[in-house]
Simulated assay, not measured.
Amino acid sequence: MKTLSLPQQPPVILVVDDDKTMRRLLRRAMEQEGYQVVEASDGEECVTAYKSIQPHIVLLDAMMPVMDGFACARALQALPGGDRTPLLMITGLDDPQSVDRAFEVGATDYVTKPIHWPVLRQRVRRLIETASLFKQLEAANLELQRLASSDGLTLLANRRRFEEYFQQQWLQMAQEQLPLSLILGDIDFFKLYNDTYGHQAGDECLKAVAAVLTLAAKQQPDLVARYGGEEFAILLPNTNAESALQVAEEIRLEIAALKIVHEPSTVSQYITMSLGVASTIPESNLNPAALISLADKALYQAKNEGRDRVSFDP
């Protein structure tokens, strides 16, 4: 995992104040600290500028014409990423009601005028550092989630991810009364391939097969998973049996077209795959495992009938 670090590029500060002199003072103070500064003279300009530049922090005056700082803060909170961008409100208002209102609309911190410049510089620095570290932690957590749900070799979804997604799609398809299809595929005589060519060649074979499966499952909700050692699952939401059979046959042909030599195989001189297909319109009161059983039964039938073929269990 990467070490957390602060941004390499100078952070961008959006300064919002209707007083031109105050904006100039704030710009000068922030540029002396090495920051890039963009100015806006009211709340509407602030929202427009924010959408364009995505600043690291907003220094926002409370009392402005057109759209005051409180309304502007609410508008920023509603923008993508706005609730994670530090908002430092700068105002001459120091009564408890104004302070409470500032934090209620999303202010991260609050500084009163006349500005104590050393305090402002430290608060800006702290808010930028904290926000930067928080974003990096979010990215690290997302990466951990991805690793926990994917197969390290093929980069496909792992079995745990498949089972979670299968449950979700079963319920969704049941609610919408749409078909759900499942393909289980098994590389023929893969143990014999591993024993003959070695585990490194076996790993390369698995990755090549995974790439074919990924290309075959084209629709957005489709999921390809490594279900077991050399067994793969392709979940096809909103796909009927006829379309699922077409996908499975396309996979079978594309695997053969890889022409990965497998001399010990009794089926072909190249790697082949057997596939079982099952399809149903789910019902929320039925066990989703029934669909897996049907696909597994179809896969067994394909193997029993000579392998390198697609079988369907209605």
Rank of each mutant, 00 (worst) to 15 (best):
S149Q: 12
G152C: 09
P11T: 00
L294I: 05
N141H: 11
Q167I: 01
M173P: 00
M89S: 07
G306M: 08
D94T: 10
D83C: 10
E129V: 04
F232I: 05
A140T: 05
N158H: 05
Q177C: 00
V99L: 07
V58I: 14
K135F: 14
E104L: 15
Y35L: 12
S284N: 05
N238R: 11
L59E: 05
I57P: 00
L275I: 06
K207L: 09
T266D: 03
E231G: 02
S132D: 03
N287H: 11
D42P: 06
L93C: 10
R101W: 07
S5F: 13
T239I: 11
A244V: 01
G106H: 11
L127P: 00
V247D: 03
H116Q: 09
T112Y: 07
E31P: 03
A289W: 04
L79K: 08
D61M: 11
F166G: 00
A131I: 02
E249P: 10
E204C: 07
A148M: 08
I183F: 00
T239N: 00
A298C: 11
D222N: 13
S5M: 09
T280S: 07
D18E: 09
E143P: 10
A73M: 13
G81E: 07
A139I: 11
G185Y: 02
H262P: 03
Y193W: 14
D95I: 01
V267F: 01
N287C: 08
I13L: 15
A248M: 12
F162T: 00
V66H: 14
V47F: 04
N287I: 01
V124G: 01
L245P: 02
P80I: 00
F312C: 02
P65H: 11
V209T: 10
D61N: 12
A148I: 04
L180M: 04
R101S: 09
I292G: 01
E230S: 01
A102V: 13
A71Y: 14
S293H: 12
M64D: 09
I260G: 07
P237E: 03
T91M: 14
V16S: 08
L236H: 00
G69T: 09
M1G: 15
L87D: 01
R74V: 08
A29W: 03
P65K: 11
L4C: 03
Y300K: 04
I53M: 10
A71H: 15
L156R: 05
C205Y: 02
R84P: 09
I281N: 03
Y165H: 07
N194M: 06
E176K: 14
L147P: 04
E33G: 09
A40Y: 05
L76C: 06
E164K: 14
R307P: 04
A208N: 13
S268G: 06
D222E: 10
C46W: 05
G106V: 07
